[in-house]
Design a protein around this nucleic acid. Structure first.
Lengths: 192, 192
DNA sequence: AGGTAATCTTGTCAATGACTAGATAAGGTG
DNA sequence: CACCTTATCTAGTCATTGACAAGATTACCT
């Protein structure tokens, strides 16, 4: 998200892969994961319309790279919040809001190549961190899987509803993190 | 979802609007809300490539109609399940799974005209039914709004994760309704 | 019967995704 | 330094698409 447009001297861009990814993230943030064209990314990066294909193959390739990078960043965020159990839930929501472009791609596998190895590895890393955080919510045995699903669904649903504007609160000046934490505590602040 | 392809005698289709909607629903179920073209819908309905435009204007118009119809059916489903409080949550998830094509459009307002009056009315009806169901979960005063958001987030998140295959359970032979009910009861089967 | 509006067709245009062939540069090896 | 291999990028092409315009056909109403 840094080196998008700089003077490009010669034939070779130097960092086209990064530039296209950044252009894609900007475009997704502006108009969703489908509201842009490969050729537009090429224009933004100042290269010919077919240049991005060399790095990503096709449009799905760009989105695969976005998802892979997204899951890496997501895992990092969740890890940093591994302290308290609510922290992971809050971090989940915060990531969705702060890195909306990544988030909107990550959980829409029909947009990209879900069998991409690099992407799958990143996704599994995030999944592992998530599962570890979930386990802290219910040290009891037995209902573990259920309460993990519950916590995940709660965080994911809140994030999704917030992002698509279904919650009236998201159109006011409410603070996402505050509200998310309140909801999580309401549900999980008792022994489960 | 009935009169898709029948012998079309003359110049006029007779029920093109319905036919295009059904074709859209089938196409969405097969390849998502963006994996098809207006012209393909026209081909499926057996009309010229520009015929659907008369009824829907453009692609967003088709998706607006899908969303409107979806919210109507959704409200119906929720109303039928208004008996027990968990029923609404289960019905939420069941609708998402049984009417996936509708659901995948409804909560993606960037795909259609979110200010369409007919669509907004249907959405608000569904919202009202949902709020009424949520109120039954917490007869207590005070935390009402929070627990409504929690219940909604839980059901929505579970449905979303199930649909996009993020839950390993959704790839096995697990029963959605059973699992959804278990999760809902785990979270809300105690005084809130 | 006649007119009006709704419905559908044909034709068109710029934009797009995907592909091909070829040009240019970078890096290593001798 | 010359050479070669490979990565990177450009230019050109094609079928498809969304959107629009103009005109043909039909239904409906009086």
């Amino acid at each position: 998200m840094a080196t998008t447009d700089q003077e490009r001297p010669g034939y070779h861009h130097g960092n086209l892969r990064r530039a296209v990814l950044d252009a894609a993230l900007a475009a997704i943030a502006e108009s969703g994961p489908s509201g842009w064209s490969l050729r537009e990314l090429a224009r933004r990066a100042g290269v010919s319309h077919a240049a991005p294909a060399h790095h990503f193959g096709d449009k799905a390739g760009v989105l695969t790279a976005v998802a892979a990078e997204g899951f890496e960043l997501f895992a990092d965020s969740l890890e940093r919040a591994a302290g308290d159990p609510f922290g992971a839930g809050v971090a989940y929501v915060r990531f969705a809001v702060d890195h909306r472009a990544y988030f909107e791609v990550m959980f829409r596998p029909e947009l990209y190549r879900a069998d991409d190895p690099e992407m799958a590895a990143a996704r599994e890393r995030a999944g592992a961190v998530l599962a570890a955080s979930g386990r802290k919510l219910s040290p009891s045995g037995g209902a573990d899987r259920l309460s993990t699903i519950a916590a995940w669904s709660l965080a994911h649903g809140f994030a999704a509803l917030w992002l698509n504007g279904a919650l009236p609160e998201s159109r006011g000046e409410a603070d996402v993190e505050e509200l998310a934490r309140a909801v999580l505590e309401l549900v999980f602040a008792r022994p489960v």
